[in-house]
């Protein structure tokens, strides 16, 4: 078990965002977190790595309670990619090197540089290494921040809508990379997504959120047209085209 979430709740003053969230994932699992805007997807991700402090419940990372780990210890276990990223005069290499931050005491070692280099290589970013981040396209930038998360050598990846704002080609590429890394390195991924087709095609676990509560959780069997209709208030049909499941609003 890589991640176990028990009875998690988060309340902004006067408004409950998440309540009674329970789920868990194992090594090699790609969990898609689905739900309408404001359902609590981003908040859930931030509560897992304690960017936000949950109001109740517990999170276990590889059987360690997150509450009892320091920020640095959590950062060695969980790589996080926020929905929006920023950069002030940093090159691609420097950005990915930041993934080694939890390990660096005084100065980056040659091992840190080598891991950074490998992360760049894995995502085909070597040629951009000395370009400034803001000179790259949206798809390339997204790959850079994923490379940073991978440089953390995490056991768990938290990705907040990694495919929004990307074109079709880059959407597929980014999700395929996540899938490949999760499978090859036997880590877990919790990915919030809006694109149901990408989710149903690539993810193997699903968490449907509705009004801050878990509406359904499990494998492909929970992705029924009834469940999707209740969560999104849109009637859908699920068809298979050349063995790929597709969600079609009707």
């Amino acid at each position: 078990m890589i991640l176990q979430v028990n009875e998690l709740a988060f309340i902004y003053p006067g408004r409950s965002v998440l309540q009674e969230i329970n789920f868990s994932i194992c090594q090699g699992n790609f969990l898609a977190v689905l739900g309408v805007n404001g359902a609590g997807k981003s908040t859930l991700l931030k509560c897992i790595n304690r960017v936000l402090k949950p109001c109740a419940g517990s999170v276990f990372i590889q059987n360690n309670e997150a509450d009892k780990l320091s920020r640095r210890e959590i950062a060695k276990r969980i790589g996080y990619v926020a929905q929006h990223h920023e950069s002030v005069g940093m090159t691609v290499f420097d950005t990915v090197l930041m993934g080694r931050k939890p390990y660096i005491q005084w100065e980056a070692s040659s091992k840190d540089l080598e891991i950074t280099h490998q992360a760049l290589k894995m995502l085909d970013l070597e040629e951009y290494s000395l370009r400034y981040l803001n000179e790259l396209s949206g798809g390339e930038q997204q790959k850079v921040v994923i490379a940073r998360a991978l440089a953390q050598e995490p056991n768990l990846l938290l990705l907040d809508e990694p495919t929004s704002n990307l074109d079709l080609k880059n959407q597929l590429e980014v999700v395929r990379i996540i899938k490949r890394v999760v499978r090859n390195q036997q880590i877990g991924a919790v990915v919030s997504m809006h694109d149901l087709n990408l989710a149903i095609r690539f993810a193997d676990r699903f968490l449907l959120l509705k009004n801050g509560e878990v509406f359904a959780a499990g494998g492909l069997e929970v992705m029924t047209s009834e469940n999707i209709e209740s969560v999104y208030s849109v009637a859908v049909k699920i068809k298979e085209i050349e063995n790929v499941p597709v969600v079609i609003p009707v």
């Binding site: 926020a82 920023e86 993934g99």
Partner: peptide, 10 residues
């Protein structure tokens, strides 16, 4: 890299 990213980096 952003405030939330900084927190996630420890």
């Amino acid at each position: 890299c952003g405030e939330e990213t900084a927190k996630s980096l420890g």
